[in-house]
Write a protein that binds this DNA or RNA. Sequence first.
RNA 1: GGAGAGAUGGCCGAGCCGGCUGAAGGCGCUCGCCUGCUAAGCGAGUGUAGGGGGUCAACUCCUACCGAGGGUUCGAAUCCCUCUCUCUCCGCCA
Length: 423
Amino acid sequence: MLDVKYLRENIDQVSQRLSLRGEKVDLSRFMEIEEHRRSLLVKGESLKSERNKVNDEIARLKKERGDTTGLISRMKGVSDEIKKIDGRISEISEELEGIVSFIPNIPHETVPAGMSDKDNIEVRKWGALPAFDFTPVDHADLGEKLGILDFARGAKLAGARFSLSVGAGAQLERALINFMLDLHTTEHGYTEVLPPFMVNSKTMTGTGQLPKFAADLFKVAETDYWLIPTAEVPVTNIYQDEIIEEEDLPIYRCAYTPCFRKEAGSYGKDTRGLIRQHQFNKIEMVKFTRPEESYRELEKLTDNAEEVLRRLGLPYRVVVLCTGDLGFSSAKTYDIEVWLPGQNSYREISSCSNYEDFQARRANIKYREKGKKGTRLVHTLNGSGLAVGRTAVAILENYQRADGSVEIPEALRAYMNGRTSIP
RNA sequence: GGAGAGAUGGCCGAGCCGGCUGAAGGCGCUCGCCUGCUAAGCGAGUGUAGGGGGUCAACUCCUACCGAGGGUUCGAAUCCCUCUCUCUCCGCCA
């Protein structure tokens, strides 16, 4: 959520920056309502001020057994008036809230302008693409032949976009989870957390999934619980409604969770294999930082995610998302794309974003500057480190051999009881 | 799921037969004084948010907030209702 005060004082500048997203945002209605809200606020507050003064007077008169009937009947009217104005204010605030919560974040000045993912810019590339002396197959075929992925039975259990991992397939995912968590906690300075996989509406709103993206989420019937689409949601909201001491910043958290997404609107896309599932495993890194440091921290965060791929020997590239492809809450995002021989293309495996104070304002996460009074909003960042299912896909496809077996990357063997290949 | 108790400022803890209580007292913290150092002692300060005024950082005034939301009342931390959470006991359960 953007700052209402900042918004009204920089209305032209903001709408110009937002137009780079290709998003049509009508800010005139916002200005109109905001002006109205403030004028009512002033009126209501001055009436309250009067009421408070007269109430003191009534209390004093009562003590002295004076006559208060005139004052009380006058205040009856004032009270009614206040009630009316407060009612109007809450109506208007609600509408205002509705408008503001649908306005996306302002792209950072270093974000390239562009309309779609075609305009994203590659910033670096790592690793040599594997050279096969046979035609590589995709992970779905490979996994089914190896008996480690069972899509038919996954669909039987739950439906389309669900799968069942078996034997070394299940072990591979578990190994990746442990490998990634160990790397981030022992070498990158993150503290591991294991959060709830369901959260309430307030928490979903704090990170920006609600109210705009309810259609992408699974909700548990007859409760206020939502299945998390990413660990970003519970982990960022750990500090919801809190004030952090400056010396505790930056805070690094990482978490393994399953993620649940409806994938509405992706019909016909990635219907094969593990690429796009309703449920998938992910390791997420989350940071809370001082505003001055957030962009430096974004670079480090992205590098932490890349390190996972380097250790696993998986070729990748990093792209910076253009203004038109940027997520709703993000000010700047790097996508890391891993090479998939089965698709002969790079596919997203991590998304690392700086939300600046957009989520912090919604979730009300602040910090107190040492030696200064007042509080400031923290900056929040997060990135996948990495999507586990897609990492498994990348390993199967990049490490496949002519006989249909798959080599296990060196770094992972200790996590798989020394196994060097599947089978 | 059933019965009961509770939720007050960074923390502890009064107030709860309605009216100078943003909130006693204590602890903590900050600044100053005192003191060879430390400790003790003395003095002052110490929440968040929104808004108005302003030679618009540091000034000033106002409003709101005692778990959340609603109600009664001229006036609610105090009375009533609903909800959430915590604790104790019972039941159930991995």
